[in-house]
Design a binder for these strands. Structure first.
Lengths: 148, 148
DNA sequence: TTGGGTGCAAACGATTTGCATATTT
DNA sequence: AAATATGCAAATCGTTTGCACCCAA
């Protein structure tokens, strides 16, 4: 993790930005909760545990900054707030998808990427250069199917 | 279109709701602009042309009602507002996907659905019953690739 | 007449912004 | 010192809600 942080530091410095204590904390929180799809407020609360005087605005600004640097990705599960996750590893086409349970709201990550063929077809047909994609699959999860 | 409207009327009446003049106008606007992914405010403005005294709230309430009746679907292109579209034909698994140009923001609809195999795999693996899915493909559209 | 439907304005919740202050180099 | 970062509070923006009035069955 140290490596990630210093790498990020370099990236930021390259564009006259600083990796301040606050920003580093936001980054750590994101790293430590990788896969949890935190909302801005959740990040804020976690950061506040270690730096009780942070402002919510700083968290938002930091998240925006990280997005500009392609360090994090935002996802929208349709619950009215954006969620943030670290990665995907820069440049990689390392997509993962989400199963969203319409009963309990839980999110399951799926790491298979079977969209290549579809993408190829589509990009030929429409002369569209694909850079990214997002797939959300809605349904009912294992837990919610169990009879009680 | 008349048929659609009267069908909708029946559907609503079946659950002690009424297809009022206002609601019919909202429905017409949606039908006439099928494929345009209107936002609530856009619908509102179009309805206001024919009924200058509508309230924005009514439009929101109507859109919500139509959703409950599965008449329309909402999509979120990540621009901070929900967008609405008529269909898909009730019950059908008639999904279509969207190509979103990251330069000009235009949306291209794709009517192929090649996700079945992926869905099958995923639902077996996670014991997840799929009810719906949403695919957004980001990239650069034909227009935006043209040198000027 | 009775219950839903509607407009208006106020309320909301997530996010953004202005500004004066604090921090980093 | 110069420039960026930050906290706070106020502002925004899309959307929702409370309420008094309106309308259709």
């Amino acid at each position: 993790m140290k490596k990630v942080i210093s790498d990020v530091g370099e990236k930021l410095r390259a564009k006259e930005s600083k990796l301040t204590t606050r920003r580093e904390l936001v980054l750590k929180v994101l790293l430590e909760n990788n896969g949890k799809h935190l909302s801005a407020e959740e990040v804020y609360n976690l950061v506040k545990l270690r730096a009780p005087d942070v402002g919510l605005a700083t968290v938002y600004r930091t998240l925006e900054l990280f997005q500009e640097f392609d360090l994090i990705q935002t996802i929208d599960f349709g619950d009215g707030r954006k969620r943030y996750e670290f990665g995907p590893e820069a440049g990689e086409n390392h997509h993962h998808h989400h199963l969203i349970c319409i009963k309990c709201g839980s999110i399951i990550e799926v790491n298979e990427d079977l969209l290549e063929e579809l993408e190829n077809r589509v990009s030929k047909k429409h002369n569209f250069t694909v850079t990214d994609h997002q797939l959300k699959i809605f349904g009912v999860c294992e837990q919610c199917k169990k009879p009680k």
